[in-house]
Amino acid sequence: MTEFTPLTALLGGALIGISALLLLIFNGRIAGISGILHSALQPADNDRLWRWIFLFGLVLGVFFVMNPTTPLPTDIEASWPLIIIAGLLVGFGSKTGNGCTSGHGICGLGRLSRRSIVATATFMITAALTVFITRHIIGA
C-alpha cells in the first residue's frame, strides 16, 4: 500500500518537465527514455555520446536525491518468469510503438501530438485493465 503524496508528485513532475524542456530548447531532442536507451546501444548510430551522458545523468540524479524519505525500492515480489516476460513486453512495446511514458506520455502529450494522445490512452487503459485482472480477478 502506498499513500497519495501530492507535494512530492508535483515537485518530481516539475523536475521531469523542466528536464524535457531543457533538452528540447537547447539540443532539439525529445526526452523519451526508451528511444534514448535503445539508440544509445546501436553501434551504427554515430550520435550516441549525448545519449550516454543523459542516461548517466539520470542515474546520477537518482543517486543525488535518494534518501530514506524518497528511497529506491529494495526488492520486488514478482516471480522471475513474470519479471522477464514484463521486461520483454515493455521493451518490445515501447520500441514498436515509438515511445513510452516519457516520450509519448509527457513530451508527446505536451506537444498535443495525435499519435501520442492515442498511444498514451492505449497504454494507460491496457495497463489499468492488466492490474484489474491480476489484482482483482486472478489475485482475488
Partner: peptide, 12 residues
C-alpha cells in the same frame, strides 16, 4: 537534463 529527470523520478 538527465540529472533532473532522475531526481524527478525519485522524488516523485
Amino acid at each position: 537534463s538527465g540529472v533532473l529527470f532522475g531526481a524527478g523520478l525519485t522524488i516523485a
